[in-house]
């Protein structure tokens, strides 16, 4: 990505006015001080639609500076429509450098994934959150859920796990599996697949969560305990694939299923596109790389 030399002069740096950024920073400090607690904030209207990452965008706008290098992913990919749109937005209003390389980014805004490459000290991961309230599906009222968090009366959420095991023999959640942050607040990990939940635990990176439409922020400071809810005899378990990534051969990454032709043939490929490309550049080869190139699967273009 080539950074623009200068940010759009018609708008303040990073779009939001300075008073709004200060409000957001105060809320973020509170969120970091109380890990997992949902801090209400006066969410602004953004030029992207609600539900399209306005919470994450506001956090990024509040903390981004000229020295930052920004990476934006959606579903793990840098080049999906909304990731491109958000990256363009920040390039326009801040002129910061953008990158697809996880290790080079100081700030990563994400929707639905945590990158496969481990994050390091000093990095900030900003999550776009559609529904911040992990109890919402059990209890529709906000006044009620806030009380439940205040009193830590988390019995009902375990009932769901109990019912799953009783009816199906295992817990059926596959994404948005609730987490207990710092032994106190139950929080929603946003709809990341539960595959990514363990990456949140004791992460060296600062994790910030923004729900623009629901007007809530929360945070997991670096090196904070994050436990995925489970029972002692039914420990939290990850989904596994029977085959490696068809393109790079990785056996430890989250895979997406891609339908490659009318005959319903399919292959499984890394959801983290940068990770997959890096591995291929290093010479790793998946079982169907040649075939993928022949069907012009767009992910295989060099």
């Amino acid at each position: 990505m080539t950074p623009a030399s200068q940010h759009d002069p018609d708008y303040n740096y990073a779009y939001l006015d300075e008073a709004t950024k200060r409000m957001l920073r105060r809320c973020l400090l509170k969120a970091i001080a109380i890990p997992g607690y949902q801090v209400p904030f006066a969410s602004r209207e953004m030029p992207l639609a609600r539900g399209w990452g306005t919470g994450g965008i506001q956090i990024t706008a509040a903390i981004i500076g000229p020295a930052d290098t920004l990476k934006v992913i959606d579903q793990g990919a840098d080049d999906t429509t909304n990731a491109v749109s958000i990256r363009h937005f920040f390039a326009r209003v801040t002129a910061v450098a953008t990158t697809e390389e996880t290790t080079k980014a100081s700030l990563i805004q994400t929707r639905h994934r945590i990158p496969e490459e481990p994050l390091r000290d000093g990095q900030i991961l900003v999550y776009q959150v559609p529904l911040p309230e992990p109890l919402r599906k059990l209890i529709p009222s906000e006044s009620e859920t806030r009380k439940i968090h205040a009193w830590a009366e988390y019995g009902p959420i375990y009932v769901r796990l109990y019912e799953d095991i009783a009816q199906y023999g295992h817990v059926t959640s596959t994404y948005s599996h609730p987490i207990l942050v710092n032994d106190r607040y139950i929080a929603s990990p946003t709809p990341i697949p539960k595959f990514d939940n363990p990456k949140m635990h004791m992460s060296p990176a600062l994790q910030l969560f923004g729900a623009g439409r629901e007007k809530r922020l929360y945070a997991i400071p670096p090196y904070t305990k994050v436990k995925s809810l489970d029972f002692e005899d039914y420990p939290f378990a990850l989904q596994r694939w029977d085959e490696p990534c068809a393109l790079c051969g990785s056996t430890s990454s989250y895979l997406d299923e891609v339908i490659i032709n009318d005959a319903n043939e399919r292959m499984f490929v890394c959801s983290d596109t940068h990770y997959c490309e890096t591995r291929r550049a290093e010479g790793h080869e998946g079982p169907q790389l040649a075939k993928a190139q022949s069907v012009r699967l767009t992910g295989c273009a060099p």
């Binding site: 375990y158 095991i165 009816q167 005899d233």
Partner: peptide, 22 residues
């Protein structure tokens, strides 16, 4: 919620986290 879940909720509310024992 199932009959078992109804009884189990009281146990989970006080902190029980072992499915088999519950």
């Amino acid at each position: 919620v199932s009959a078992g879940g109804n009884i189990g909720e009281s146990l989970m509310a006080r902190g029980d986290r072992h499915y088999g024992k519950m």
